Simulated scan of single mutants.
Amino acid sequence: MKPSGFKALLSLLLWLENPAVAMAVPVEGTFSAGRDCPAYVSKNKLTNPDGARVTAGKAYPVIEADRRWDARWYRLRLPSANPPERWVGRDCGRLQPGAAAEPAAERCDVAGQADAYVLALSWEPAFCELKPDKPECRLADPVAYSARHFSLHGLWPNKSGCGTDYGFCGEVKQPRRDFCDYPPITLDPVRKASLAEVMPGTASCLERHEWHKHGTCQTAMSSDAYFALAADLTRQFNGSGIADFVADRIGRTVRTEEFLARLDAALGRGARDRIGLNCEHGMLVEIRVNLPSELKPGASLGSLLPLAGKSSGSNCGSRFRLDSMGRQFLSRIETGG
């Protein structure tokens, strides 16, 4: 018998006699790291000469497991390690069986690959027309900040080829039925109170959804810094003169061209080309502001816009309505009032 045949037979006999001491078995799939862990060259000696680690939120191709069933170790491929084949304990993440992992460049849930950002801003009165049962909409205050300013929906890292589907790059990989079902995030108490003003959706735990879906896809900022930047950009947008412009026109119909011209006047020539308007039922509901891939705290919104890609435009037609808080415009239309 050839040596290779003998080794295969020996491996099979060992496994049949005692599966727990069988040799490693090939595995196809992906290992999603739930936390940072050392990646060993030898799992028995725990050797890690270059200090290689798997990173929470990232996925790695699996080569083999130490057991056919109830594996305790998985051997992964880490391209940056030397050698790249490394053992990681099963308690560091979870195995997703199946075909070998897609290259990271083709995935839409791997952190640190954003090539742009989008700042999404809601017109809260229209949002509450569409979703009146949301907690933040049940006690609509006509003098609240959100009644006369655009509100923060989210700051989204985007990746070319994924767009707004770029998300869930951390431990949470699926959307939750209710935003409050997401794990809580830690925010400084002062920061949390400040965020609640510009993001009334915190009453529905919107900040949890935004962090786990979008915030985890960037690697430069903590949750505190991420929301501080998002809140600052929101205030800059409102403070540019846009909020004053809309406040004078609440409850009225506005020509889209007039609004776009105001964007250029407030944020710099060409701003309109990097800002998209979204309307439903003739109401302005959301604005999406394109931003570049590098965002630094304190940067002016006007200086960032020229560095961003162009927007896909508006679906608002030639004019739209700026709804007022608590007036239930849609109900009046449906009842003929």
Rank of each mutant, 00 (worst) to 15 (best):
S204P: 00
G57S: 09
R77A: 07
A228F: 04
A116Q: 10
R262I: 01
K310V: 13
R75G: 01
D188Q: 11
A225V: 08
D36G: 07
G298H: 07
P292G: 09
N158L: 12
N82P: 00
D244T: 09
R255E: 13
H214L: 03
P38W: 01
R35V: 10
A271T: 09
R274G: 01
H214P: 06
V143E: 15
L195C: 06
S293C: 03
K7C: 02
G336S: 10
M221Q: 12
R191M: 12
A105W: 04
L229Q: 08
T216K: 05
E124T: 13
I185A: 05
R94H: 13
W73C: 00
C162F: 02
D224F: 06
G154M: 10
V54A: 01
L305G: 02
A52D: 14
L78I: 15
V289R: 00
C37D: 10
V172N: 03
S146T: 13
I242Q: 02
C217V: 08
Q236V: 07
T219S: 14
P184N: 10
G326P: 07
R262N: 11
A24S: 14
P135E: 04
T335L: 13
K7N: 07
L277P: 01
G57I: 07
R68Q: 14
P3C: 09
L10Y: 09
D66M: 09
K58Q: 15
E17I: 08
L187M: 06
R176P: 03
